[in-house]
């Protein structure tokens, strides 16, 4: 297995920045991420962008439609196309979410939570192994933010993720913001979550903003990373080390420089956290 990247900080590539990025030969970041569905099997600007950015830094592929927990058959052709692109751009990290988003051949275009049961664990682990066989590499599974819990769940989300890593030999994309959002929405402890995650399995981090709706936190990626998320990021770095971190910003997307600033802050926060680490 090739070694996983470390000490990288960057941001998710969004369409509103394509022109600026295509015209830039020196982006002040050390990695970037693109939504797989925005580039796999398509031509035009997204493909040109990924080739341009790839010449400057590693680009990670992040999927939103795999529906790894769904009951429909895995999209084998889509996974093959991801593998082809990942090989072509020498992509070190390929990820998708712990969720389902399909039903009966239809797509919900959302990341719906799963019940955390033995049945779901068996099902997801088998599909992750199948996906990894097709991808020819280990898949990173990301924890989603959620607003609802199943009565059927028999384990915590972090226990489910830890067990999944063992059964499927997969990696994790640990979304720090999603932990903060879900912890508030379901009343669990962020620290318990962090403690339950196997550090050696975490290969990438996400940072993003959310909004406080009073009754719940809403994971809208429409604002800067809040202090509460930075706080958990520092603890995460102290536990997991200098895992690559990506800033996500999807709504009210600011100027590119603002995103670059956030990724610079991630680098500073990481350095400070590592310096303070016991």
């Amino acid at each position: 297995m090739t070694s996983l990247p470390r000490g990288l900080h960057g941001f998710g590539l969004r369409t509103s920045h394509y022109d600026e990025l295509l015209g830039s030969s020196s982006i002040d970041a050390t990695c970037a991420e693109i939504i797989s569905e925005n580039v796999v099997g398509r031509g035009g600007r997204p493909l040109a962008l990924i080739e341009h950015v790839r010449s400057q830094m590693p680009v990670f592929l992040h999927g939103v439609s795999l529906s790894i927990g769904g009951m429909d058959p895995l999209a084998v052709d889509h996974l093959r196309a991801i593998r082809e692109l990942a090989d072509q751009i020498d992509c070190p990290l390929v990820s998708d979410h712990l969720c389902f988003g399909t039903h009966g051949g239809h797509f919900g275009h959302d990341l719906w939570p799963l019940p955390y049961t033995e049945e779901a664990l068996d099902h997801v682990a088998a599909r992750v192994r199948q996906a990894q066989d097709i991808l020819g590499r280990r898949l990173l599974i990301e924890n989603v933010s959620s607003y609802i819990s199943y009565r059927a769940s028999t384990m915590t989300e972090w226990d489910f993720l830890a067990a999944l890593c063992e059964r499927a030999d997969c990696l994790l994309l640990f979304d720090v913001n999603n932990v903060v959002v879900s912890a508030f929405n379901h009343g669990f402890s962020e620290d318990d979550y962090l403690a339950g995650i196997p550090a050696h399995r975490v290969a990438q981090l996400h940072l993003a903003g959310h909004s406080d709706q009073g009754t719940h936190l809403f994971d809208d990626h429409s604002s800067p990373v809040p202090e509460r998320v930075w706080n958990l990021y520092r603890k995460t770095v102290q536990k997991m080390g200098d895992v690559p971190a990506i800033i996500e910003w999807d709504g009210n997307v600011p100027e590119l420089e603002r995103l670059v600033d956030e990724s610079r802050r991630a680098r500073r926060e990481e350095q400070a956290a590592l310096a303070e680490a016991p």
Partner: peptide, 9 residues
């Protein structure tokens, strides 16, 4: 699991 996902849908 399949029935729960159907209910969610």
């Amino acid at each position: 699991l399949a029935e729960l996902q159907g209910l969610f849908w």
